[in-house]
Write a protein that binds this DNA or RNA. Structure first.
Lengths: 202, 202
DNA sequence: CCTTGGCCGTGACAAACGTCATGGGCGAAA
DNA sequence: TTTCGCCCATGACGTTTGTCACGGCCAAGG
């Protein structure tokens, strides 16, 4: 049985290169390519793909959200996440969203086709080290609003800027940020943002 | 004449995929692949590559520094930079380092082989829009120490942390940072870091 | 020669920031 | 029902930060 594969990555060069790489395999057909997260579901439907290879960083919606949509609407299509950043939080969120596998972009190219095959057969594919880190670190301790406020503070504006952006009082914003700083162990707002990004909590 | 190509990218998956893509072309032979900047020169020498495809973000030394080394030691090998981030400052620095071309990773895959061929023939390949931005923005207005201090402040520590790291007085650090904030147009230290990174001034 | 500009430092001041205590409203769990 | 945690807000506090004015050192260039 030949695998019908969809590739989603925002970088056209990488997308095309991955397609070229995987098209060399006899048992894999690249039947669709998209560059935005919000085009994934429609493309899977139209192409009848049986496996979707999704990058996380994408315009529109990110790959994790796209994976959740695919899982909900087209469960016969299995999802393999592939991403640049091996952040443990990403793995956890991707699995929660129903992804069947998770591969980072610095795994050898030769293993990718195997990962696709395994996912296609219903197996799970995960990076062991990443899984360990993910377990060790656990879920995000950040509250919904804390995450939201921290994300809004990412661009680097003053408290009042953030407050305007999220429609909250300045005091409330400061409280949420203070709490986020405490939970991340950072010494700054900027530091907290950095840590949270690293952990995949944003 | 067949083109002997070296590919340097820290992400094995991308590296292999690009190799697969370009190996499909009759007039291109991928003769070497490396994952670190500091292995580029030796690999070019050993493989006799005539064109080097270099990513910028790499461990060891970055692609720009590697391009400078190749230009100095093996001028018969032309360099084509390929990078994720289309930062004008990167383009400027890459060209100063002797690169013959500059491609961002969201150009269509079909154009990459052409870019390689043009570079191989001695032509220059640059993204027009990026070149315009680069000219409009000009060189970094930041002073050497300002750049240094700003880079040290990147990790997100307090003034005293930065001061310790760069062996300067706290007051001096604040002056340099203030100046950098003014020149970047940022409203924060964090904001200034963000802007400077975007522009490729770090 | 003298001016210019980068570099380093000090001191002072206003604004922004991080922390804390406090309090009310709300939904979920015990 | 009561408790608990999250959410929102306020006010107060001490600290950090950003800005400015000022002075001294030094190398490059008019």
């Amino acid at each position: 049985m030949v695998i019908r594969l969809l590739i989603a990555d925002d970088q056209a060069l990488v997308r095309g290169a991955l397609a070229a790489l995987l098209d060399l395999e006899q048992d894999i057909d690249v039947v669709a390519q998209v560059g935005r997260g919000d085009e994934v579901v429609e493309a899977v439907r139209a192409s009848g793909a049986t496996v979707a290879l999704l990058d996380i960083e994408m315009p529109g919606i990110d790959g994790i959200a796209a994976a959740a949509l695919v899982g909900a609407q087209l469960p016969e299509c299995r999802v393999l996440m592939v991403t640049t950043f091996g952040r443990p939080g990403y793995l956890a969120r991707a699995m929660q969203a129903g992804a069947a596998g998770f591969v980072v972009k610095d795994t050898p190219a030769a293993e990718l086709a195997d990962a696709v095959r395994r996912v296609s057969m219903g197996l799970r594919v995960v990076d062991l080290q990443l899984a360990a880190e993910s377990l060790a670190q656990g879920d995000s301790p950040l509250t919904e609003r804390e995450t939201y406020v921290l994300a809004a503070a990412r661009q680097g504006g003053s408290i009042s800027d953030v407050a305007r952006a999220v429609h909250l009082s300045q005091g409330t914003v400061r409280n949420h940020l203070s709490s986020a700083i405490g939970k991340t162990g950072g010494k700054n707002r900027a530091d907290a943002v950095r840590v949270a990004e690293e952990r995949g909590w944003l």
